[in-house]
Nucleic acid binder design. Structure first.
Lengths: 264, 264
DNA sequence: CGTCCTCTTGAGACTACTCAAGCGGGGTGG
DNA sequence: CCACCCCGCTTGAGTAGTCTCAAGAGGACG
């Protein structure tokens, strides 16, 4: 789709073999949770060798689907969402590079929500039986994935807090802070900002706000010199104040990023 | 506290031994998820032998606590909640009889929210190492608890949908429908209603509404002959319409109750 | 160059909130 | 046993935040 996406290919990601994998989002992510051996990283590299480019706004796994494979995001933004009868969409979670979706939900047998891309994405599909073999043979990976699932749950609880009891400005700020930390952990963000290739409508469906109100809220944030947002590039101008507005506590993300902000 | 609570004692719950356990909420709950052997039920009975009565509005596990034991609710309503700096409370989940809290979150090491009672409760505290022994020796129980955790996650997603995109009336209706099914599954509700020993403030903190608006919403539901609510006793007058308003789909709860309502 | 999609802004309406006051019922102390 | 008191419920009035509808502007792409 865009030039910046084309340069990444399945071959590129797999070819580095046993050398450093610091550019591989899944490995970067899991390494922060559990120390991994060379063998572990090699296996992880291998299962994400075959990647597929997916267009924006494409459903990857549908509600009701029988859960035959896991989805790993390597580039771009994907989400879990549910639709109401009225057509309204509620986004339940973001899947950013390094996120592996539903590694152990096989017990339930059937999806209760849909996985979809927001932007153009590179994803790998991992057959469920291959994945469970790996989990058995590589306890570090298994532990890391279990931990990462618990973190996703903690994140969902934060979101519930967000839409349940925060104002539009606070919600927005919280989401931006969360994404900053999560993306920085996999090398897709700095303290200064990141690429956020989604629409204001998407943000509204995430935060329980109308697209119009998202727009007005972002204007306020721009006017107060908290952020800039131009052609999908988010610039963070005042991270401390943004975090203060959001009451953002990065601990739940279990990441090394974002912990240096508060003096003791 | 109240007379109806006094008559339940730890001894009472444990004494039935190997006979039928249909009155035991944990067993009733897990049996619906995975077939259990006599040995399984005996073990479950044993771990919940020592119960403790807890006063309303008592914190059982605090945010930041090191996760040394699991909590099993046998009677009454408990919740997971988080507090904001402003003092606002967001309730994240209800724990009703038969719910076992956090069986496998040991990996995270520390709670990111607080567990607390709403009403007077009977609870059992289960040491984490005893629990993990049981999970190893009784795969059925382990499977059932894992399933039950996945169901709790699906429930959290439904709540996020609820506060994110439904009106006050719809949210309220959805919560009442969910509780009806969950309580019926453990014998604490019928199609006609159940005891709901919580305040309107609690409901507000659950649904992201003010106590005043909860009150007005309940008045509307009473005026429309959807429900009655008198001295903590909820009467459901028109379950089909309630479910229709809520767009309630009980499938996510994986319970045998509540599936007969829609003709094909 | 036209079209479509997203962003932007305005105006008016509505939902839900806050503050405030009165009511009722169950538990407690005299 | 009665009176009081406290907590939770109820209702009103005014307000704030957010929504809907609508129209126009700015880009990206064919």
């Amino acid at each position: 789709m865009s030039a910046s996406l084309e340069q990444v290919s399945g071959k590129h990601l797999a070819s580095s073999g046993a050398s450093k994998h610091h550019h591989h989002p899944l490995i970067r992510r899991l390494e922060q949770l559990v120390p991994l051996t060379e063998v572990d990283t090699a296996v992880l590299c291998q299962i994400s060798a075959v990647t597929r480019q997916v267009a924006p706004h494409t459903d990857l796994v549908l509600e009701g689907d029988p859960l035959t494979e896991a989805v790993l995001v390597l580039q771009g933004f994907a989400v879990r969402y549910k639709l109401r009868d009225t057509g309204a969409r509620q986004i339940l979670a973001y899947l950013v590079p390094g996120d592996l979706c539903d590694p152990d939900a096989a017990l339930l047998g059937e999806m209760d929500h849909t996985i979809s891309t927001l932007s153009a994405c590179f994803v790998a599909r991992i057959p469920r039986d291959l994945l469970s073999d790996i989990l058995e043979e590589h306890p570090n990976v298994a532990r890391a994935l279990r931990l990462s699932k618990l973190i996703e749950e903690a994140t969902t609880r934060c979101w519930l807090m967000n839409v349940g009891s925060r104002s539009a400005l606070e919600r927005m700020a919280h989401l931006l802070c969360e994404l900053q930390v999560r993306l920085q952990a996999v090398g897709f963000a700095t303290e200064e900002g990141y690429e956020m290739p989604i629409t204001q409508q998407d943000l509204g469906d995430t935060l329980g706000l109308s697209n119009v109100h998202v727009n007005r809220t972002m204007r306020v944030m721009r006017e107060q010199s908290l952020i800039g947002w131009h052609s999908k590039q988010l610039t963070i101008l005042d991270l401390p104040r943004l975090q203060e507005i959001a009451e953002f506590e990065p601990k739940y993300l279990r990441t090394t990023a974002g912990h240096e902000r508060l003096p003791p």
